[in-house]
Design a protein around this nucleic acid. Structure first.
Lengths: 156, 156
DNA sequence: ACCTGCGTTCAGTTAAAATTGAACAAATCA
DNA sequence: TGATTTGTTCAATTTTAACTGAACGCAGGT
């Protein structure tokens, strides 16, 4: 009974980790980054570098690269345990907010880029208007996402 | 002078098309789809199937596949010109709105999926809470994006 | 000093995605 | 009918991204 329960949780855990791998793949991140994030979200507590490699069944090189990318994005943080020189990783408190901010920022820079193209064109040219419209579109999207961040009532 | 102007516009056009190719690449679409979209946004008017292949310098097979994908997404529409049996494509009026709706929908389904994983876990388990939080996150994002769509005062 | 464990790096490999190009069917025209 | 044009399909190819694994430097431990 206890075992059944545990098994079910472990199955769910594995499925969730797998799911996150695919989900973040669709957002321009490598699958393993998604799996690391999924594992850390699920477990909540710090996990060691080696554990990640072992549990996910991937090379240490992969953990190194992908964990670094996640740290850089602010999704996870690296922590040190006293008397243990391994690196540990855990979900960042502001993880989700950071994710939103990252996306919003990307939208804004895209908007700016499009605006740049528009400004190259004569004001009366119809492409100018359309590119302007596209720039507005990206800005609106950035606004919407940042707004969502605030809605989450966390510090963003 | 006239020539300089035209050249500059053409250069900007080429750069914009190229930019869109890269931009949509980051959103999970093939580069050529982005370039087709960029070309149609810039030009505004219908362009023929063959023109797309010629101007973008890619195979007809690629135009066929990518244009179809864009049509299916609702970003562009296929139109027919009287007395010309070629297929023409042009930017859909609701192009940008559709883009937002697509993203919002994906967010909601992701949220639901995560919620599904959460429901597999006992209510008192801490992973349950975290997955719930993640689901809320995706919902908030979907809301934010749909809100942005409405802000654009177009019919969405 | 030597050994062991840890994380990084990067050249090589593998796997996945995108694109090509030739074959094809349908439609048009002479 | 036969020749042409048009868009689709799919197997082969190219391109790109991701991953591996061995070599390396660094820290501690014995």
């Amino acid at each position: 009974m206890e075992d059944t329960m545990t098994t079910h949780i472990l199955t769910t855990r594995a499925n969730f980790i797998d799911f996150m791998g695919h989900a973040l793949e669709g957002n321009g991140m490598p699958p393993i980054a998604g799996r690391i994030l999924g594992l850390l979200i699920f477990d909540g507590e710090p996990r060691s570098f080696s554990d990640l490699a072992t549990e996910l069944g991937v090379s240490r090189g992969s953990i190194s690269a992908n964990a670094r990318a996640l740290v850089q994005r602010g999704s996870i943080i690296k922590v040190n345990m006293p008397g243990d020189r391994q690196d540990y990783f855990q979900l960042a408190d502001e993880s989700f907010c950071v994710l939103l901010q990252t996306i919003a920022t990307r939208m804004r820079s895209t908007s700016q880029a499009v605006q740049g193209f528009a400004s190259e064109l004569p004001d009366d040219a119809t492409p100018h208007k359309r590119l302007d419209g596209l720039a507005v579109f990206f800005t609106a999207m950035a606004d919407g996402i940042e707004n969502a961040a605030k809605t989450l009532n966390q510090r963003c």
